[in-house]
Amino acid sequence: MKAAKPVSQEVVQQVAEYFSILGEPMRLRILNLLRDGEKCVQDLVEATDTSQANVSKHLKVMMQAGILNRRSKGTLAYYSVEDDLIFELCNLVCDRLANRIEQQALNFRAFSFIGKR
């Protein structure tokens, strides 16, 4: 078996930064809202029930990471997902978590005392 090549600190740092973007619940909520297509900032503010400043802060971070696109129309800014791979990544994580939760439920049911006397 071949030994893995060492990865540069810069590469590791960039990967960690990308994953950290998904570590913020509000960003995941925004991505979920954008799953069906582009939305203007005001739509995102209303759907997340938070301030425009908060939504804009998270949109900027995801834009800088190349996850989102921004399009202006008049005075409105519309955002959409640039990198659909982000949804595949989220689906993998959600599937893994669902499997763990299902297994935990089976473990609890196996331990249940209901119906046993």
Rank of each mutant, 00 (worst) to 15 (best):
117 R>C: 08
81 V>L: 10
92 L>P: 02
15 V>T: 13
79 Y>Q: 08
39 K>S: 02
51 S>T: 15
23 G>F: 11
26 M>A: 04
4 A>T: 10
5 K>M: 14
76 L>M: 06
109 R>K: 12
99 N>I: 01
87 F>Y: 15
100 R>E: 07
15 V>I: 07
86 I>M: 01
117 R>H: 09
98 A>N: 01
77 A>P: 10
94 C>A: 15
90 C>F: 11
12 V>K: 07
15 V>Q: 08
95 D>M: 00
18 Y>F: 15
90 C>M: 15
31 L>C: 04
4 A>M: 07
73 K>H: 12
14 Q>C: 05
25 P>F: 02
112 S>A: 03
101 I>E: 00
1 M>T: 15
42 Q>N: 00
22 L>G: 00
89 L>P: 03
60 K>N: 14
34 L>I: 06
23 G>N: 09
32 N>Y: 07
112 S>C: 02
27 R>A: 06
50 T>V: 06
8 S>V: 12
78 Y>S: 11
114 I>V: 13
76 L>R: 14
69 N>L: 13
49 D>H: 05
34 L>W: 05
32 N>F: 04
57 K>E: 09
1 M>W: 11
116 K>Y: 10
19 F>L: 10
3 A>P: 10
77 A>S: 15
21 I>F: 03
49 D>K: 05
54 N>Q: 08
10 E>H: 13
9 Q>H: 15
10 E>M: 08
26 M>C: 04
75 T>W: 11
100 R>F: 03
43 D>K: 01
97 L>T: 05
95 D>Y: 05
79 Y>K: 07
25 P>K: 05
53 A>G: 08
22 L>Y: 00
83 D>Q: 14
6 P>V: 12
76 L>W: 09
104 Q>Y: 03
42 Q>D: 00
50 T>C: 00
10 E>Y: 12
103 Q>R: 02
19 F>G: 02
41 V>A: 05
8 S>R: 12
92 L>N: 07
41 V>K: 06
7 V>M: 06
68 L>S: 10
75 T>Q: 12
12 V>W: 05
1 M>F: 10
52 Q>Y: 09
92 L>D: 09
61 V>F: 07
17 E>F: 02
66 G>H: 11
5 K>R: 12
5 K>T: 09
48 T>S: 06
9 Q>N: 13
3 A>S: 14
103 Q>Y: 00
104 Q>M: 03
82 E>T: 04
64 Q>M: 14
19 F>R: 08
